[in-house]
């Protein structure tokens, strides 16, 4: 199989790679770029652990064919805070006990960020809808919803 060349912006940085055309964005991130913050839970679009932002919208990296990101912008969990400083949503997750085993957390945070970028003060229903494609086996969701609610209010994470 012939490799193809793609270029894209990942977490604000321009990158170019030669890849086999049949791999997923999840594999591109984890195996080719070493960005292992994006988790592999099911590889079937069912758990949300691989959620990343593609041109600002949440998608399942396991269901995106890697060549599709040519010319696009991707944001992963590694790209949302600044060096040594957590993003407001990350702070709120910690403050509200929304992280237990942490496996769902990167995907949850990106789904939440996409919502908050569009609606800075989302309703509870909007929050629940926004994370409806992300499973958490540990927390029972309430802490997660509260954390997102808190990051919404004033956008400061209220910690």
């Amino acid at each position: 199989m012939k490799n193809i060349k793609i270029s894209f912006v990942i977490n604000g940085k321009k990158e170019e790679r030669e890849i086999p055309p049949n791999i997923s964005l999840l594999k591109l991130l984890r195996d080719h770029l070493g960005l292992t913050g994006t988790k592999n839970g099911c590889e079937a679009g069912e758990c949300g652990a691989c959620t990343v932002l593609l041109d600002g919208r949440p998608v399942y990296a396991c269901l995106v064919l890697a060549p599709k990101v040519d010319g696009k912008e991707i944001i992963t969990i590694e790209g949302i805070g600044e060096e040594g400083k957590l993003h407001a949503v990350q702070k709120a997750f910690l403050a509200h006990g929304a992280v237990q085993c942490g496996f769902c957390t990167p995907g949850m945070i990106l789904a939440a960020k996409a919502l908050l970028d569009e609606r800075p003060n989302p309703s509870r229903k909007e929050i629940e809808d926004a994370i409806s494609g992300n499973l958490c086996r540990c927390t029972g969701y309430l802490q997660i919803v509260k954390a997102i609610e808190a990051s919404g209010k004033g956008g400061k994470g209220e910690v």
């Binding site: 679009g45 959620t51 269901l63 995106v64 789904a111 809808d129 926004a130 494609g133």
Partner: peptide, 9 residues
């Protein structure tokens, strides 16, 4: 359909 992520793709 599906979830927000599925609806986006």
């Amino acid at each position: 359909v599906g979830s927000p992520q599925i609806r986006n793709m």
